[in-house]
Design a protein around this nucleic acid. Sequence first.
DNA 1: GATGAATGAGTATTCATTCAT
DNA 2: TATGAATGAATACTCATTCAT
Lengths: 211, 211, 211, 211
Amino acid sequence: MPKKTFLRLDEEKRERVVRAAINEFHENGFEKAKIETIADKAGVAKGSIYQYFENKKDLFLYSVTWSMEYFMKIIDTHTPLKEMDVFDYLLKDTRHLSDLAKRERTMLLFYQDIYSGKFGELAESINEELWKIGDEYILRLIAVGKNKGTIRTDSDDQLLLLFYKGVTTQLKEHIFGKLRKNEFEVSESMYEEVEQTMQKMLLLLKEGMGC
Amino acid sequence: MPKKTFLRLDEEKRERVVRAAINEFHENGFEKAKIETIADKAGVAKGSIYQYFENKKDLFLYSVTWSMEYFMKIIDTHTPLKEMDVFDYLLKDTRHLSDLAKRERTMLLFYQDIYSGKFGELAESINEELWKIGDEYILRLIAVGKNKGTIRTDSDDQLLLLFYKGVTTQLKEHIFGKLRKNEFEVSESMYEEVEQTMQKMLLLLKEGMGC
Amino acid sequence: MPKKTFLRLDEEKRERVVRAAINEFHENGFEKAKIETIADKAGVAKGSIYQYFENKKDLFLYSVTWSMEYFMKIIDTHTPLKEMDVFDYLLKDTRHLSDLAKRERTMLLFYQDIYSGKFGELAESINEELWKIGDEYILRLIAVGKNKGTIRTDSDDQLLLLFYKGVTTQLKEHIFGKLRKNEFEVSESMYEEVEQTMQKMLLLLKEGMGC
Amino acid sequence: MPKKTFLRLDEEKRERVVRAAINEFHENGFEKAKIETIADKAGVAKGSIYQYFENKKDLFLYSVTWSMEYFMKIIDTHTPLKEMDVFDYLLKDTRHLSDLAKRERTMLLFYQDIYSGKFGELAESINEELWKIGDEYILRLIAVGKNKGTIRTDSDDQLLLLFYKGVTTQLKEHIFGKLRKNEFEVSESMYEEVEQTMQKMLLLLKEGMGC
DNA sequence: GATGAATGAGTATTCATTCAT
DNA sequence: TATGAATGAATACTCATTCAT
C-alpha cells in the first residue's frame, strides 16, 4: 500500500528504495531498522520515504510483497509448471538456489527471514498467502506424479505434501547454510558435493529410510 | 550469567522472574519487551531486575537457557535414551508434545520462537548448542537403528539425520498448529486424527513416497 | 499581502482559496492547519498556494482581512449608519446575526475565533484595527444618542462604550450559543424567545439592574 | 490525571513543574509549547515529565485545573461569600485583581487565555465547569440582592446574570489592559483613575445608560 | 537487598517550503 | 503559471539503565 507518489516514480528509483529497505530490514530486523538509514542507502531524503509510504510498517509490508513477487517471477520463468515431476522439480529448484544466492543474496536472506517467521506477526498475513501458493504448486505436482505412477497412491495428498515439504525445506536450508559458510562462492568440488547430497536425499524421499 | 544476587534468591522467586521474562519476550519480541512489564509480571521492582541481571540481553539469554534446560529435563524423564528406536522415539516425542502444550504453553511457544530463529542473532550461540545436543541424540538413535537393522545402512548418518529432522520437524509443527487452532483443547476425535497422521507419516519416513 | 499572482486570478478562484483557508484555520487553528489540506479544499496544487502567498502566516493574515472586509460590507449594507439609535442598532445588529449564521456559518465562527483572541498574537495587529473601527462606529451612535437625549450625558463616552460593549457582546454570544446548539436551525418559538431576551436586555441596558 | 509518580513528589517540585508548564503554555500556546523547555524551566529532565504525565495534553489539562483551583482558593479567602452584595463584590473582586496581577501575573494571564477560549476545544470540558461554578456564585449574589431589595425583581436571574457578567467582564479586561500597559506597575494616580472608572461603571450597572 | 524516581539518548513522523519540470 | 516531488528541521515520546534512599 505505497502512496500514489511512490507509484508515479520511475522504476529505477522505486527499486532502489525497496532494495535499501530490504537490506536494512534483513540486517537489523524491523524494530531496529532505521528509516533514515534506508533513505540514505536509497539516496533519497528521509522525508521522501514518508511521501512514498504511510509509515515504517507500510514500507516493510511492501518490501515483503515486492521480494515475494520478485521470486515468483523468477521461479515462474525457470520452472515451467506443466508436466514436471516432483522429484525433477526438487533438483531444478534446489540447483537454482545457488544461482540466486549469488545474484540476490540479500533478498534471498530476507525471504528466508520472512519464511522462517523472524518477523513474527508483522508479515504473518502475507506469509500465509505465500505458503498457500507454494503448497498448491506442489500439490499439483503430486497429483501429476500419482497419475504418472511415480508417487504412491495409498497416501493422501496433504500428508505427502507435509512429507515433501519437510524433507525439501531441510535440504534447502542445509545447502543454503553451506553456501553461506563459503560466502556464496561455489567451488567445483563443493558443487559436486551438493549435487550428491541432493541425489541421495532424493533417494530417501522416494524410498524412505527404513529397510 | 545472572548476578550472584539472583542466585541467592529462593527458587520460587527466581522462577517467577524467569517466567515473567519468557512471557514478555514471547509476546513482544526482544526489542519491544519492556523490563518494567517483566518486573510487574514478576511482582518485583524494576530496579531489582538490574540487581539480578546485567541488562536486558542478559536476562533474555538466561531465559533462553532456562527454558531449554527445563525441556531437557522433561524430555530426559520421558524418553529414556537407551535402546530406543528412532521411530518409536518420534511417536513418543510427538505424543508428549500435546501434554506439554497444555501445561507449559507459553514456554513451549517461546521455545519455538527460539528454534525458528525469531530472535535472530541474539539467541544464535545458544541455539547452535541446542541443535547440536538434539542432533547428537538422534544420531545415536540412528546408529542404534542401523545396528538393529531397522535403518538402511547405505546412507550416511548425516544425511539420514537431515531427512529425519525435516520430516519430524514438519510433523511437529503441523500438529502444534492444530493444537493452537483448538486453543490446546484436545478432543478425543482430534487425538485420533493426530495419531493417524503420525502413523502414516511414520510409514512415509520408513518407505518413502515413491513407488 | 498576497503576491501579484494571486491578484491576477479570477475572483471565483480567489474566493475558493480564501474560503478553504478560513475553513481549515477555523477547524484546526493556525498551527495544525495544513497547507496541503487548504490546497486540496480549494482544488489547487499545494505549490500554487506559495505562488499566491508568501507563507502560511501570510495566507492566514489575508484570510482574516478578507473575512473582516466581507462582514464590513454586509454590515454597511444592512445598517445604514446615519441617525440610528444605539438601542435600535443593537436590535438590528443582533437580529441580523441569525441570518448570517445560517449563510456564512464557518466564516462567522472564524470571525469569532479572531475576535475572542483564539489566534493570539497572530491576528493581534489586524484585530486591534478591527476593534477601533467598531468602537468608533458605536461612539458615533453614542454621540447621536446624547444629542437626541436618549443617552445620559453625565457619563463620558469611553465609559458608555465599555458598558455598551460589555452587555451587547455577552448578549450576542448568548444568542450565538443558542443557535449553535440548534445547529443554526431557528424555529419560530426560539425566534420569539431570542426576541424577548433582546428586549429585556435592552431594558437593563437603559435602566440598569439596580432599584 | 497525572501519574502516581507525580503525586508522590514533594509539593515544591510539583509546583515548580506546573508553573513551568503554565508559563510555557501561556507564552507559546499548546502546539508550540515544548516539553523540553518546560522540563528545563522546572529543572527536571525531559523524561521525568513523562513519568509524571501521560503526555503533553495531560500536562496541559492538569495545568489548567491547577491554576483554576489556585484562584478558587484565593477568591474563597478574599471574598467570603455570605451576605455580600453583588455590587460590593464587584468592587472587591476588581480591586483584588491588581494585587493578583502583580504577584501571579503569568498565571493570571494563563487563566485569561483559558477563559477567552484561546486553547479552543482543548480546555473546553474544564472550562465549562469553571463557568458554571462562577455563574452559580453570582446567581447566589443576585438572589441575595433581590431579597435585600438592591436588585430589581422584575427581571429573571439568568438575564441579570448575563447582564452583570457582560459589564464586569468588560470592566475587568479594561483594567487588566491598563495594568499590562504599565507592566503591572500601579502608580497612585492610576490607582485612582481605575477606582473612579469602577465607581462609574457601578453606577451604570445600577442605573443603566438610558435617561 | 529492594525500591522507584531520574535521566537522556535515540527515532518515527510531520509539514512548511523549495524548485525542477 | 501550475504542479507535486524533494527536503530536512523540528519534536513528542519511549525505555534501558543508574542511583539515592
